[in-house]
């Protein structure tokens, strides 16, 4: 592989790496919205979110991440 080709490959690889990170975040946000929508939006949605719905969505997303961390740690401890 000549120099320009390997530069091309490196550029493509870093591009894919970036897109990969975006895909992970995108997937996470999509998943969390799905789960928290089910938990927090109990009635047919109105023309505006109530403040309790907003804080429910936000708390739900953050606690889901906490839960995920907690369970991961638990699993790591089990492996030892």
């Amino acid at each position: 592989m000549d120099a320009s080709q390997s530069a091309n490959t490196a550029e493509l690889q870093s591009f894919l790496e970036q897109e990969k990170q975006k895909a992970v975040l995108n997937e996470l946000v999509g998943k969390l919205t799905d789960v928290c929508w089910e938990k927090c939006i109990t009635y047919a949605p109105g023309s505006k979110f109530s403040s309790s719905e907003v804080s429910c969505l936000s708390n739900c997303a953050q606690r889901y991440l906490d839960t995920s961390t907690l369970i991961l740690r638990r699993f790591q401890n089990m492996q030892r």
């Binding site: 919205t33 928290c36 939006i41 047919a44 949605p45 979110f49 936000s58 997303a61």
Partner: peptide, 24 residues
């Protein structure tokens, strides 16, 4: 209802997205 629901779902995605970025 569908119109409002679509708007709220997009808004919910924004709220969750901000919550995730603050938590990360």
């Amino acid at each position: 209802c569908i119109t409002r629901c679509v708007e709220r779902y997009i808004e919910a995605t924004g709220i969750v997205s901000r919550a995730v970025f603050t938590a990360l």
